[in-house]
């Protein structure tokens, strides 16, 4: 730097560097640099760089993502500048008025191509406004779609739950039916087996005066102590009551199993015959307490002897 510079020159460097040079001070500095050459220009740069470092005394703040996105959208849209709109034109007028009424304390940088800037800003604002409107419309539309989808999803969920519930019911029914068929087959097999067994006894039980239309078939195998009974037209057992079979051996009734009937009076029983029943030659069915009885309490509704 030129060694002849004075404190007043330094003051011009400083106000210029800090961006608070008045127009007069800026002109003086330009004249000094022109006069004194590169040394003064370098000094001016150094102090400007120093002043710029004051910006680092502020806490850095990361901009929002949207700012970056808007910036790049603007520079991409900036390839074909548009004319001033009314708002921007008004801004420009206000700017000019403000500048004239109250001169800026900030030294204005030379801004080449400045005439294109309002167009850029207008376009940016216009683009931003249009983008904001489009974004709003899009948001509303998306909200509507989301709501409709939510409603549909909700309905679908209810429907799915109903279907799943129905499926569970159907599966349970199928399982029950399969179990019933399996039991039926097993009974058929046992009946066939019992019927085919050479030592099985058969008895046709007839309804008594209490249930004259009732009848039953009994297969009894004393070797295996197993018995099967199939009844028809028995009156439905009242609440808390059940039918009980009795094995009558040597005139003494031995208590057998309990069974009930459906609405048609059909019932069946697979029973393990009581001890001593191998001598049984007659059978009876009575209406007893649902828990059963050790001795007949009710009147016989079916009775018969082994063939």
């Amino acid at each position: 730097m030129n060694a002849t510079h004075t404190e007043e020159h330094d003051n011009l460097f400083v106000v210029e560097a800090l961006g608070v040079a008045t127009a007069d001070e800026a002109r003086q500095l330009d004249a000094l640099i022109t006069t004194h050459g590169d040394g003064y220009a370098a000094r001016s740069r150094e102090l400007s760089d120093t002043a710029a470092m004051l910006a680092f005394s502020a806490m850095p703040v990361a901009p929002q993502q949207e700012t970056r996105a808007r910036l790049f959208a603007a520079i991409n849209a900036n390839q074909s500048p548009t004319s001033l709109d009314e708002d921007a034109a008004q801004d420009a007028v206000e700017d000019t008025s403000a500048t004239q009424a109250q001169p800026s304390n900030v030294y204005q940088l030379p801004v080449p191509k400045v005439t294109s800037m309002p167009g850029i800003l207008v376009m940016r604002r216009s683009t931003f406004t249009m983008s904001a409107i489009a974004a709003s419309v899009l948001m509303i539309a998306l909200a509507g779609v989301a709501f409709a989808m939510w409603r549909r999803a909700d309905a679908a969920q209810v429907q799915l739950a109903q279907v799943q519930n129905q499926a569970r019911i159907n599966v349970a029914r199928e399982a029950d039916e399969a179990k019933r068929i399996a039991n039926e087959l097993m009974r058929e097999r046992e009946a066939t087996s019992a019927f085919a067994a050479p030592d099985s006894r058969f008895a046709k039980l007839k309804g008594t005066a209490t249930a004259p239309a009732a009848r039953a078939n009994l297969i009894f195998n004393p070797r295996t102590n197993s018995a099967m009974l199939y009844s028809h037209a028995l009156p439905p057992a009242p609440e808390g009551k059940a039918y009980q079979i009795w094995y009558i051996a040597d005139g003494k009734p031995l208590p057998g199993g309990l069974f009930t009937t459906n609405n048609e009076g059909d019932g069946s029983l697979r029973d393990v015959a009581p001890s001593g029943s191998d001598a049984a030659s007659a059978f009876a069915v009575t209406l007893e307490d649902a828990l059963g009885a050790l001795e007949p309490q009710g009147t016989p509704v079916l009775s018969g002897v082994a063939s």
Binding site: A55, F56, A58, M59, P60, V61, A62, P63, T67, R68
Partner: peptide
Amino acid sequence: AAICLGFML
């Protein structure tokens, strides 16, 4: 951008 924004803020 962060230093500029902090500065301008």
